[in-house]
Design a protein around this nucleic acid. Structure first.
Length: 627
DNA sequence: GGCGTCACG
DNA sequence: ACGTACGTGACGCCG
């Protein structure tokens, strides 16, 4: 080992620390000898907790400032690398290289709180971690009984260990810009304690999970393996053609100018001058103009009692006045520009030239994934401006998209065991047509397009826990008609009605509703006296098993597909998941092989009486694979 | 930081 | 009489 590891020779520091309620030993490693001792201890350990400290929350963009370890319940170790403080620190890259055998050693079990983040940070420096076997964030999420409850490390330490921790904010004291500015002493006590508490939390959370075997299974066989798949997806990212997106942006700008000019030209001729300075992006100002100046009728109030100017309202008002329609167009373009042009361009990673979203496994109450920074699960699907066409496969590659067809309705069929619903999917009857045929009392061959459309809306609304009022509004029909349709629906699919009743009853008794695999969602509002709140709770009790089970199915498929691609050493990579759809990027030559694998694994992710169907699309960009 | 709005499944 | 569809994330405005 080289002395050049250090800027200057310097003794490491170890000291007793009292962090709020707890006494523990905090070590700061700044010299070679102590690093070696630490490595020896890590090497002997069965399990170690690891936590990285960075100068920001973007693991592939920000830098590693330090790293901490814990391998028993009484000590924590911090290795500072890049603190601004002018005292000696170990060299980051060299130290990581020395630690490599620890990270790579699959006999040592690694514990993290939000492993995916730390793994990306380490990968950024070329470090792979083997045997990531416990993520306290994922475990805590599965055990969570109250959605409102936080599951960050600080909160978990207080809740499960009764040991409060200093928050990141407290450490930053409002004066440090990022973690690298925090003095090493304070940083050590903060970071080493994070690892220590993560180490201890694992024991508690593991016990908790094992008490509910189905939850433990989800943790071990679904969520932990999935975390690794998501890590790879985030790492891979997706290419965005900046020039192409800028071109689209220019077109949008032109259109935006046109609409704006048109709106103000209309105003100029007829209304007071003061409206010429109106900001069309201000709901407040638009509201004043529409309802005070134009005296248009108030269609809908917002939650806060304001006069609403949302899409629905403006569409209604556009029937009686030209301006609301123009504002709608302005909004559409303005949204595209701010959210999907400007921001996406900013998100291109300078180091990889690609967009790296972040998937959260613990945010959505039903078990779905969430995508953020940027959200790639809500990129406009309409081909009007072709935002999706700017997401391209690399030269020589293609995109492959694989969508489950009507997965939630199939889940409903499986869960309810409804004969009619199952039969429809087994004979691959057009399910929306079938529903329409029953509701309108016409033979299936005679169902019109409009009737099928109604059938489709009804099928979907069942999954949301429909109400006559909601359906009547959605379809623009009388309440009595909506009631009639719903009655007919439940008359046709009798077991669906029974299942809904049973599911609500069980949820009330147990306090939670659950997916097929057994992930729970607690719904305290089922005890509500307030009818609106109670009814909202029953809809959640119905929707969650369906949405959540669908999420489990695609997660299972993702794990399997990833495994096969790895085993077969294929270059194809999963890059996105959009709830019922997977997108892969792959060399042209692999299309045939991978298409077969993906379809096979998605369709057979579960062994059900209800068949699952997957549609595959191939193309050079994301738009080309969007149906 | 809350609110209104709107993009997706 | 009342009035909401289920699940999200991000933007601009406004205070």
């Amino acid at each position: 080992m080289q002395l050049s590891l250090f800027d200057k020779p310097q003794k490491s520091i170890s000291k007793e620390v009292k962090t709020k309620k707890l006494k523990w030993k905090c070590h700061t490693i700044t010299d070679k000898k102590d690093l070696e001792k630490l490595i020896n201890n890590l090497k002997k350990s069965k399990e170690i907790a690891i936590d990285t400290e960075t100068d920001g929350l973007r693991p592939l963009k920000n830098e590693l400032v330090g790293i901490s370890f814990a391998f028993n319940k009484k000590e924590g170790y911090y290795i500072p690398f890049a603190h601004k403080e002018d005292t000696p620190q170990l060299n980051r890259q060299k130290t990581l290289e020395i630690l490599k055998p620890i990270f790579k050693n699959s006999k040592i079990k690694k514990i993290f709180h939000n492993a995916k983040f730390d793994l990306l940070v380490l990968k950024h420096y070329g470090i792979d971690v083997e045997n990531v076997f416990f993520d306290t964030l994922i475990a805590a999420n599965l055990l969570r009984k109250d959605e409102g409850e936080k599951i960050n490390l600080k909160f978990l330490s207080t809740k499960y260990l009764k040991e409060p921790m200093y928050t990141f904010k407290q450490i930053m004291k409002g004066k440090y810009k990022d973690f690298s500015q925090v003095p090493i002493k304070a940083a050590s006590e903060y970071s080493a304690y994070d690892s220590l508490q993560t180490f201890k939390l694992k024991q508690v959370l593991e016990k908790g999970l094992k008490q509910i075997p189905e939850l433990y299974k989800i943790f071990k066989n679904l969520e932990m393996p999935l975390s690794n798949v998501l890590f790879k997806m985030e790492l891979t990212g997706i290419k965005l053609n900046k020039e192409k997106l800028e071109e689209i942006g220019k077109k949008i700008d032109k259109e935006l100018n046109k609409v704006e000019t048109k709106i103000f030209a209309t105003i100029e001729n007829k209304y007071p001058k003061k409206w010429l300075s109106m900001n069309l992006n201000s709901p407040q100002q638009v509201q004043n103009f529409l309802f005070d100046e134009l005296k248009l009728p108030v269609v809908k109030k917002t939650i806060k009692g304001q006069r609403g100017t949302g899409q629905e309202v403006l569409e209604e008002l556009s029937k009686i006045h030209p301006i609301p329609g123009m504002i709608l167009k302005f909004r559409e373009l303005s949204k595209l520009k701010s959210t999907y042009i400007k921001s996406l361009i900013k998100e291109i990673n300078p180091k990889t030239g690609r967009i790296h979203t972040s998937f959260s496994q613990t945010l959505v109450a039903t078990g779905r994934l969430a995508s953020s920074t940027p959200n790639l699960q809500n990129i406009p699907a309409t081909t009007d401006h072709g935002i999706r066409s700017a997401f391209e496969a690399e030269r020589g590659n293609l995109f492959l998209s694989a969508d489950y067809s009507q997965v939630e309705l199939r889940v409903l069929a499986q869960m309810t065991k409804d004969k009619n619903l199952i039969a429809a999917f087994k004979d691959s009857t057009d399910i929306h047509k079938k529903t329409a045929s029953q509701i309108f009392n016409v033979p299936i061959e005679k169902v019109t397009k409009q009737q099928r459309q109604v059938g489709k809306r009804i099928n979907f609304s069942i999954i949301y826990g429909l109400t006559p009022y909601g359906l009547s509004k959605d379809l623009g029909i009388k309440l009595s008609k909506a009631k009639e349709y719903i009655e007919k629906y439940f008359d046709t699919y009798k077991n669906v009605a029974k299942w809904i009743e049973k599911t609500i009853k069980e949820a009330k008794e147990k306090g939670y509703t659950k997916t097929l695999m057994g992930k729970r969602r607690y719904i305290s509002e089922l005890k509500e006296k307030n009818r609106t709140l109670y009814q909202a709770a029953t809809r959640i009790a119905i929707n969650t098993p369906v949405q959540g089970t669908s999420a489990e199915i695609i997660k299972k498929a993702m794990i399997k597909i990833n495994k096969i691609l790895e085993d077969k050493k294929l270059k194809a990579k999963m890059i996105l998941q959009i709830h019922d759809e997977l997108i892969l990027e792959l060399p042209k030559e692999e299309v045939k092989k991978v298409e077969k694998i993906v379809k096979e694994e998605m369709e057979n992710a579960v062994k059900w009486v209800v068949p699952l169907e997957v549609a595959i699309n191939i193309g050079k960009n994301w738009e080309k694979v969007t149906k």
